[in-house]
């Protein structure tokens, strides 16, 4: 398992000349930094900046370091930063295996066994040929998490990933996601409205002002 570190060096984002946020922080392997704040405070823009697809209308500055290397000059696909959205966003035209295969490095040998093993680990063994449209919400979320892990990222961003789940499922998914991330030794940044998410993440919390 990789042991990586994510550092935000005076990252600041502005829109139309108005400063939205400034974050200066460091996240160690297996740790979760939680960012809370009202909508419009720029939380999601921060994640977009780190992932590499902030819209050009925003003005952003600051460095994002993964294991000491600044990734901001890199295009999104070469940053190796995984992102979980509010929706699982499983590609609807691909099977479950197709979705997972899409994430695995083309050079990996024996993708099929990686997929089989991964599905077993999230309790969805034998789901390879299923149509994503036929899965329940919880199953979709687990596939989305597995897909992210199979892309072997160096850091993970979580954009309110539990907000659309019902309360029982939400607790279950929180446990699963955070334990997986911790076990993989990945530094993560969680953006949320929900105090319970922050408590469950158990790391540093930054609260943004409107």
């Amino acid at each position: 398992m990789s042991e990586s570190k994510l550092e935000l060096d005076k990252v600041s984002i502005a829109l139309n000349g108005k400063q939205l946020l400034t974050v200066d922080s460091s996240v160690g392997p297996g740790e979760v930094l939680t960012i809370m704040g009202p909508s419009g405070s720029g939380k999601s823009s921060l994640l977009a900046y780190i992932a590499g697809f902030l819209a050009p209308v925003f003005e952003a500055s600051g460095g994002v370091f993964v294991n000491g290397d600044d990734i901001t000059p890199l295009p999104a696909e070469r940053r190796r930063v995984g992102l979980l959205f509010q929706d699982p966003l499983l590609f609807p035209h691909l099977s479950i295996a197709g979705n997972l295969r899409f994430a695995i490095d083309d050079r990996s040998a024996d993708k099929a066994s990686l997929i089989r093993q991964g599905l077993d680990e999230v309790g969805l063994g034998g789901f390879e040929e299923r149509d994503p449209g036929t899965l329940s919400g919880g199953q979709e979320s687990r596939i989305a998490l597995l897909r992210l892990l199979l892309s072997s990222p160096n850091a993970v961003l979580l954009d309110e990933p539990f907000s659309k789940l019902d309360s029982q499922l939400r607790a279950e998914m929180r446990t699963l996601v955070f334990s997986k991330l911790r076990a993989s030794g990945l530094p993560s940044i969680l953006v949320t409205h929900d105090q319970a998410d922050a408590d469950s993440a158990g790391g540093e919390i930054i609260t943004l002002e409107q």
Binding site: A51, G52, P75, E77, L83, D87, L89, F102, P153
Partner: peptide
Amino acid sequence: DPRWSQVASTLGASPFKSFWRIRIPL
């Protein structure tokens, strides 16, 4: 939805791959 391409790129897909394998089929 722009998030389809964003998901693809966070999974390491080049714009080329994400165009042919995601946007065109969708």
